[in-house]
Computed example of a mutant assay.
Amino acid sequence: MTHLLLLADNLDMSPLAGPLTERLQPFAPNLRVCLPGDPGADTAEIAVCWNPPAGALATLPQLRLVHSIAAGVDNILSDPTLPDVPLCRVVDPAHAQGMTEFVMWGVLHFHRHFDAVLANQSKALWRRPRQIDAARRRIGVMGLGTLGARVATELHRFGFDVRGWSRERKSLPGITTFGADQFTGFCSDLDLAVCLLPLTEQTRGILGRATFDALPRGARLIHAGRGEHVVRADLLAALEDGQLGGAIVDVFDTEPLPPDDAYWRASNLIVTPHMASVASFECIGEQVAYNVQQLLSGGALRHVVDRSRGY
């Protein structure tokens, strides 16, 4: 009997048990999907995870595969006791569409000054904000992987002046791109910065005072990367003193965000509940089932993480 363990902290993984069992049953009838505490959980050969408790994976002596249920794996790689087995992630074809929709909403929110309109409505003030053409709005996308490249391309197609920054300089039609050593130049004249970076040791804390000061005063931020990209005190201070004119933040180092967190009450900050783009259970089930079948048959796994890069 082979056991697959669904393992998470602060997330109910049980809805995934049915789809996985259904997909795995035809080619792996002796595989059982289980939750922590179920019979066979401690002998699991496969762990399907979201933010697993630190040290939990190291307690599985027969572990052969760790599979994230999302594109991000930093919540798994942050565990220093992570066993040396293949780590795979989910790449949802619909993920880029969802992220593009979220970023486009955020960009339009600031570009068309809906933040000012909503503030004026609460005061019953009729004030028409000054509008400018999209071509005069400079937007910088941090991270040009699958998601970032799609977002940057769609913003360009919509008429915005788009720049992109990544560790290795990319080439995207119509978009000015920058490499790792050109970060200050990338930031220097942006109206709005969009962070879609993976979390690595190089990007941890990148949204801090040095970056905010490199942006023009009053620039806006849309952050849908990872919570650990942000230096919390620096973000709050930059919003308070006006260096940042506003921000939308979708990801946090602690989720759910506690009710007493200062983010809820920060000026010019919109908090969204990690909703920018989430893979469906159908997509997760399909990709995890494929890799489990490959593992059991000795085939090649898809979307294997390069641990040195963090993605």
Rank of each mutant, 00 (worst) to 15 (best):
M1C: 08
M1P: 13
L6D: 07
A8M: 11
D9P: 00
L11V: 09
S14G: 02
L16I: 02
L16T: 03
E22P: 01
P26T: 03
A28V: 06
N30H: 15
P36H: 01
G37Y: 07
D42K: 06
A44S: 13
E45H: 01
C49K: 03
W50C: 11
W50N: 12
N51A: 14
P53R: 12
A56H: 06
L65A: 05
I69A: 04
G72L: 02
N75R: 03
N75T: 15
I76F: 01
L77Y: 02
P80L: 00
L82W: 04
L82Q: 09
D84W: 04
D84N: 11
D84P: 02
V85A: 10
V91P: 06
H95T: 06
G98A: 12
G106R: 02
H111S: 10
H111V: 08
H113T: 04
L118E: 13
S122W: 00
L125I: 15
W126S: 04
W126T: 07
P129W: 00
Q131M: 13
D133I: 00
R138M: 01
I139P: 08
I139W: 06
V141P: 09
L147K: 03
L147P: 05
A149K: 07
V151P: 10
A152E: 10
V162I: 09
G164A: 14
S166T: 01
S166Q: 03
K170Q: 14
S171H: 04
G174Y: 04
G174W: 00
G174S: 09
G179Y: 00
G179M: 00
A180T: 05
F186S: 13
C187T: 07
V194K: 10
C195F: 02
L197C: 11
E201Q: 11
E201N: 14
Q202A: 15
G205R: 02
T211Y: 00
F212K: 03
L215C: 07
A219W: 01
A219Q: 03
G227C: 07
G227F: 04
G227A: 05
E228I: 00
L235A: 08
L236C: 12
L236H: 07
A238V: 06
E240Q: 15
D241V: 11
G245S: 04
G246N: 09
A247K: 02
V249A: 09
F252R: 03
D253N: 08
D253L: 04
E255F: 11
E255A: 13
E255T: 13
P259S: 08
Y263F: 15
R265F: 06
A266T: 06
S267Y: 01
L269W: 03
P273K: 07
M275E: 12
S277L: 08
S277C: 13
V278H: 11
A279M: 06
G285T: 07
E286Q: 14
V288P: 07
Q293F: 09
Q294L: 02
L295C: 10
S297A: 15
G299L: 11
H303S: 13
